[in-house]
């Protein structure tokens, strides 16, 4: 069977759901963050696949932007996690249930 757009989209959907499962099921903040990265990457794969099979480069430019924004987002998010860890000495979401620091 010729590998087409559908194959890539199925891989992307599976990867996205894997990341979603990680965000829902895991308790460690850092691993939740890695799962978020996994979800972003799944979206990137779908963008590139559709761009390729549509004969259009716009999707690839969008992925370029997504990668850049993801890098900025990781920097800010990890700084927030470090600040939170300094206050609370924990990186588990179940210990971070109150809103007030």
């Amino acid at each position: 069977m010729q590998v087409g757009l559908q194959h890539y989209l199925v891989v992307s959907a599976l990867l996205f759901c894997l990341g979603l499962l990680g965000v829902i099921a895991r308790r460690n903040l850092l691993i939740i963050y890695m799962s978020l990265e996994l979800m972003l990457n799944a979206a990137n794969l779908a963008f590139v696949a559709v761009s390729r099979f549509n004969g259009n480069l716009d999707g690839q430019v969008m992925v370029f932007f997504i990668i850049t924004v993801a890098a900025a987002e990781v920097a800010v998010g990890l700084a927030l996690i470090v600040a939170l860890y300094r206050k609370r000495q924990t990186a588990y979401v179940e210990d971070l249930t109150t809103m007030k620091l």
């Binding site: 794969l45 590139v48 390729r52 690839q60």
Partner: peptide
């Protein structure tokens, strides 16, 4: 995943993926 990008002929993005991520 960078390998998948290469298969999709997105060579630049494959390199950026490895470099940045």
């Amino acid at each position: 995943m960078a390998g998948l990008f290469v298969l999709l002929h997105a060579f630049f993005l494959a390199a950026v993926q490895v470099l940045v991520y």
